[in-house]
Amino acid sequence: MWLDEARSEPFITDLAVRPDLKRKGLARASLALLMASAPYHHAMLWRASVAGDNSAALALFAHLGWQRADRGGAADGMVDHQYLRPTLSQEGSDT
């Protein structure tokens, strides 16, 4: 993971799982562990950049509630995502 010092939010650039271990929940568990670890457990906004042809990663971020974040016609084939962590008052609410 790379932290963009200028923005101060965590920015995930690489998350890889060995081919023989894919589809076992390791990427999901790794993200959860990372997001809960110090010094990142208080970060409200997270960002990630995913290759546009990486359907498994795109599906993972979508399933975990990350939203696509348009960065104005990126020519590098990457799809930016962001995640805004719910506040404690929002967690578990139906509205």
Rank of each mutant, 00 (worst) to 15 (best):
M44N: 00
S55N: 12
K22C: 06
G92S: 09
R47P: 07
R85M: 11
P86T: 06
R71G: 08
A36G: 13
D76R: 03
G77S: 02
E91M: 11
G73V: 02
A27F: 04
K24T: 03
V79F: 02
W66D: 09
A69I: 11
M78F: 09
V17F: 00
P19C: 01
M1A: 12
D14N: 15
M78A: 11
T95K: 12
G25Y: 10
G25I: 12
F11I: 14
G65P: 02
P19G: 06
A74N: 03
L84R: 11
K24I: 01
D14V: 14
D53H: 11
Y83Q: 12
T13D: 15
Y40D: 07
M35V: 14
G72E: 06
L64R: 06
G65Y: 07
W66S: 11
S8G: 10
D14Y: 13
R28P: 02
L88D: 10
M35C: 10
G77C: 01
L60C: 05
M35P: 07
L45E: 04
Y83P: 08
A74T: 07
Y83A: 10
A27C: 02
R68P: 03
A75D: 00
G52P: 03
L88K: 08
S30R: 02
A38D: 12
A62G: 06
Y40Q: 01
H63K: 14
P10K: 03
E9Q: 11
H41Q: 14
S89Y: 05
R18V: 10
S30E: 02
A74K: 08
R18P: 00
R28D: 02
A48Y: 03
A51E: 06
L26T: 01
A56S: 07
W66Q: 09
R7C: 15
A27H: 00
R18F: 04
D94V: 13
L3I: 13
L60M: 03
G72M: 06
R68A: 01
H41G: 10
L21S: 07
R85C: 09
L34W: 08
R68D: 00
L64V: 09
A48H: 02
M78L: 12
H42Q: 13
V17W: 00
A69H: 14
Q67T: 04
A6H: 12
M1T: 10
Y83E: 08
A16K: 04
A43M: 09
D94W: 14
R7M: 15
F11W: 15
K24G: 01
A62T: 10
